[in-house]
Amino acid sequence: MIKFIFTTLLIIFFIRMVAPPLFRWLLGMFIRKKMRNGSFFYTNMHQQQRQQQEQQSQNGRAKGDVSIDYIPERPERKSFKGGEYVDYEEVK
């Protein structure tokens, strides 16, 4: 029982005291590395532009154009003659 309590307290201590600074340090290292390489902002912006240009060249049309390949036939609707009426009682 004492071993369980000690282990639980040790895990709680780790989560409250050690994990936040450790994650902050790791995130800082990741961002510094990306900033040093110049790929933190640059990669995503130009990658999206490149994908749009590739899509335009593959489709052979500009962005926003609409083409409809198939229009299904609509079945004729029977005119609605009415439905069942249900009696109701108003509650006050």
Score class of each variant (00 low, 15 high):
Ile68Trp: 01
Arg32Lys: 08
Gln48Asn: 12
Lys81Thr: 10
Ile31Asp: 02
Asp69Phe: 01
Phe30Ser: 11
Gly38Met: 04
Asp69Leu: 05
Phe4Leu: 10
Leu27Met: 01
Leu10Tyr: 03
Lys78Asn: 03
Met35His: 11
Phe30Trp: 11
Ile12Met: 01
Gly83Lys: 05
Thr43Ala: 03
Arg61Ser: 06
Gln47His: 11
Gln49Tyr: 10
Arg36Ser: 08
Glu73Pro: 09
Leu9Lys: 00
Leu9Gly: 01
Phe23Val: 15
Lys92Thr: 14
Thr8Ala: 08
Met29Lys: 13
Gln49Arg: 09
Asp69Cys: 04
Asn37Val: 12
Ile5Asp: 03
Gly83Asn: 06
Tyr88Asn: 04
Phe6Lys: 04
Pro72Ile: 00
Gln56Lys: 08
Gly60Gln: 01
Met35Asp: 13
Ile12Asn: 00
Val18Asn: 02
Pro21Asp: 13
Lys33His: 12
Met35Cys: 04
Phe40His: 12
Met35Gln: 12
Asp87His: 05
His46Leu: 07
Arg24Gln: 09
Ile68Gln: 00
Ile15Asn: 08
Ser39Trp: 07
Gln49Asp: 15
Ala19Ser: 13
Thr43Ile: 11
Gly64Thr: 01
Gln52Met: 14
Gln49Ser: 12
Phe40Ala: 02
Pro72Met: 00
Thr43Pro: 03
Thr8Glu: 03
Ile2Trp: 02
Gly64Gln: 00
Pro20Gly: 07
Tyr85Ser: 12
Gln53Val: 14
Arg16Asn: 12
Arg32His: 04
Arg74Asn: 13
Lys34Val: 10
Met1Lys: 05
Phe40Gln: 02
Glu76Asn: 05
Lys34Thr: 15
Phe80Ser: 09
Val66Thr: 11
Met17Val: 15
Glu89Asn: 03
Arg74Leu: 12
Phe30Glu: 14
